[in-house]
């Protein structure tokens, strides 16, 4: 493990070096908010953002992605996966990526997702500023999560940059001349992690996530589903901004010659009216309350039963994105826990 300590100036010089060497994506200002986008210069990189509009999921499962090309009845796989560095991912988003890694590799390997993932070097940064709706500490994702290649932590005026994988070590090669992190700074970093965990539990889930699968078993007819869903516009915004939502639709698009074209994967959302509709128009999840419950069961029970992780990472994006103000997982799961 390489563990360097640098000034912001040295960090920027390193990032500019990475940009010169290849594609770098990082968190940046966008209007009054933040978004991941291609970095043109280190000065645009925000490491003190609160939360990005969309999670970095879009680099591994793009909103639209060509997966096949067809001509004359033959299908060929396509992928534009290429090496890139993803800079400044918050720990909760890293936890979400680690979950998707499991889901797309499990049972049937999804080579489209995995090719993009293999090509990425992911650098996490510890959270400097909290978004108002975050509850990451409640779900164990407030500080550096497993799976990242390198970790950046701001400690006072210094930045500690640490490699976690061989990919991360290669990335840190440009910092060879920088001093190793000193003991005092590393001790302060430990303290910062503790502080972050405390601060990000202000909005508190009053139930341990590992107990949720069992609690939800008895909550199928809980009034909260109908109550919340009666306000739901079925707009799918909560799906759209969620770092762990990965349901998708597949569509064909033809060229002027209809025997040639592409098959495309696009994001879909289980809150949308026709998500469970089959040909012939029978909708197996017609009621909003059924769709609403399904989403919380997926996060709290179904996905955990598949991969062992609570599938809400506590980013709070759904809380902010929901115009009806009904999408707060803290509120929903605490209600469920109350009755028990």
């Amino acid at each position: 493990m390489i563990r360097k300590q640098v000034t912001r100036q040295a960090l920027d010089a390193w990032v500019d070096g990475l940009i010169a060497a290849g594609r770098v994506v990082g968190a940046q200002k966008k209007g009054g908010r933040y978004a991941f986008d291609d970095l043109r210069r280190a000065a645009d990189l925000c490491l003190d953002y609160d939360v990005t509009i969309l999670p970095p999921k879009k680099y591994f499962l793009p909103p639209k992605e060509d997966i096949l090309r067809f001509s004359d009845g033959r299908y060929e796989s396509v992928s534009d996966a290429a090496p890139f560095t993803l800079l400044g991912v918050h720990p909760y988003d890293m936890a979400a990526i680690a979950q998707m890694d499991k889901l797309f590799a499990q049972d049937n390997r999804d080579e489209h997702y995995l090719a993009r993932r293999e090509q990425a070097t992911v650098v996490v940064c510890d959270i400097e500023r909290m978004s108002p709706n975050i509850f990451a500490a409640s779900v164990g994702t407030a500080t550096a999560a497993d799976g990242c290649d390198a970790l950046i932590t701001r400690v006072g005026r210094a930045y500690v940059i640490e490699s976690h994988t061989a990919k991360g070590e290669r990335l840190l090669a440009g910092l060879a001349g920088a001093p190793d992190a000193d003991a005092v700074t590393l001790a302060r970093r430990e303290q910062l992690w503790e502080d972050n965990a405390r601060l990000m539990s202000r909005r508190e889930l009053r139930v341990e996530p590992r107990r949720l699968p069992r609690l939800l078993e008895d909550a199928y007819d809980h009034p909260v589903w109908e109550e919340k869903a009666s306000q739901c516009f079925a707009c799918g915004s909560c799906n759209l901004v969620c770092p762990t939502c990965y349901c998708f639709d597949v569509q064909d698009d033809v060229e002027w010659d209809p025997s040639r074209g592409v098959r495309r994967r696009v994001w879909d959302g289980c809150m949308l009216t026709d998500f469970a509709t089959v040909a012939g128009k029978h909708n197996f999840r017609k009621n909003r309350a059924d769709r609403y419950r399904h989403r919380y069961y997926r996060k709290g029970k179904y996905v955990p039963e598949k991969i062992g992780d609570f599938s809400c990472v506590g980013c709070g994006r759904c809380v902010s994105a929901c115009v009806a103000r009904i999408a707060d997982p803290v509120e929903v799961y605490n209600r469920i826990a109350e009755v028990q």
Partner: peptide, 12 residues
């Protein structure tokens, strides 16, 4: 896969 990082088609 064609047009990108080489992944054997049989696995798609």
């Amino acid at each position: 896969m064609c047009g990108g990082a080489g992944k054997p088609e049989a696995k798609d």
